[in-house]
Structures are given as C-alpha cells and as structure tokens.
Amino acid sequence: MNGTNQLSRYAELTLVLTKKEIKVRYKSYLLGYVWSIANPLAFAFVFYVVFQVVMKIQIENYVLFLICGLFPWQWFSNSVNASPATFLGNASLIKKIKFPRSSVVLATVLQDAAHFALSLPVVVVFLLAYGSSPSLTWIWGIPILMFVQLLLTFGSALFLATVNLFFRDMERLVAVIMVFVFYFTPVLYSDKMIPDKYDSLLILHPVAPLIISWRSLLLEGVVNVRYVEISFVHATAIFFVGYLVYRKLSWRFAEVL
C-alpha cells in the first residue's frame, strides 16, 4: 500500500469507529444529548453554590465564567480518563486483525470533540442570558483551539492507552493525577488570582494555557496569542511523546493483551 492509500484507510477507519462511538453513546438513551451536557452543567451548579454563594469568590458572572472553562475541560478529562481502557477494551480486535491501532484512540477523542462542539450552543445560551454575545473571532478562534486541544488530548490518550497495557496501574494513577490537574488548572478560579510567585509556573503547565485561551475566546471574544502559542508547543510535544511511545510498543500489543 502506498502512502495516500494508507492515509485514506486510516481516515475511513477512524470515521467508522467514531461513528460507532457516537451511535453507541446515544442509542440506548432517550435523552442522549441532554446527558452529555448535564454533567458539566451539574458541576457548574455545584461549584457556583460552593464558591460563589458560600465562599463569595470575587468573579463577575461566575456561572458563565465556570461554563467557559468547564466545557473544554470536560472534553480533555473525559478522553484522558477513558484512554487507559481503550486498547484493553478492544483486545479481541487487536489480537485478530492487523489495522492501525491508534485509530481506536483517535476515535474516542474525536467522539468527545464532537460532544464539545455540540455543547457550544449551550455556551451561547448562557452568554445571551448574561447580556453578552458570541464574537466574530470565534470563526477562526474555535477551529484553532480545537486543533490544539485535539493534538494535546490525542497525544496524552495515546500515551496512556499504550502504557496501560504494560503497566496496568496506570489506570488508577490517571484518576489521581487528573484530580491534581483539575485543581491546579484555572477552571474554578481565574489565572489572575494566582499569586505572582507561581505565575511563571503557569507556562510550564500542559493544560492551563489552553483552558485560559478557551475562556478568553468564549467569554471575551479575544484570541490570547501568547497562551495559544504556549499551548500549541505543549500539545505538539505531548503528541510526539505519545506517538513515539506508541510506535515503539505497538508491535507488542497482541502479546500482552
């Protein structure tokens, strides 16, 4: 097979697998779409009560602020939390058929990406409810940020899915690490509230610059070029690490499953 053929096979395979993921997610639930936005909305409500009503955090329109960070975070966290089980869950395929294994991981990440895209109208509803409106910069800002996040999420998921085959503790470890990442990422609070002495650490954070970029885009219609650049560097680095680990180990998948 030549390069173009392989690429189109990869694309078709990913498409069919993504379609399957989406269908399976919606099929047996009457309120399919509602469930996929109910989760971040429920979190937003809980955080609103805890941090604004009880703890009186000084952020304007806190619910809107939360939603603009929580929706992109949900995409990242759903994909990453599901990733250790991806290859394990497809053991019977991997042991029998020769096909590019990474497409299974890409399909789950794309499925979460589709849900994120579908949840954007909810952000619009909240913007309007708070007397604000979507900005024209969304037209090019959203595709750029989605691409960066896809790179970051696919890289992380590929790494975790691969490593978990050889080191099954990864699954538990990921659950713990993700709690850390969530609270150390400015989702509940704004990056301006971080004490100055830790401010320089923010650019070393693989997820924070992306979430900050999402929020300035969705909330203020501003593409924060510096943070977008930083998150692109992180995403590219993580993608290559994930891809290299996968490349190095994928020939042994059928042995360890």
Partner: peptide, 20 residues
C-alpha cells in the same frame, strides 16, 4: 462477536467489520 458491537444493527456492524 469479537469484532461486533452489541448495540449496533447488523448493517452497521457490516460496515464496521468490513472497514476493519
């Protein structure tokens, strides 16, 4: 059943398996 998905229809499984 190894390449099949329980929730999908027969026709959908044909597409999935054929491409795989």
């Amino acid at each position: 059943g190894s390449g099949f998905h329980q929730e999908l229809t027969g026709a959908e499984n044909i597409e999935l398996n054929g491409v795989l």
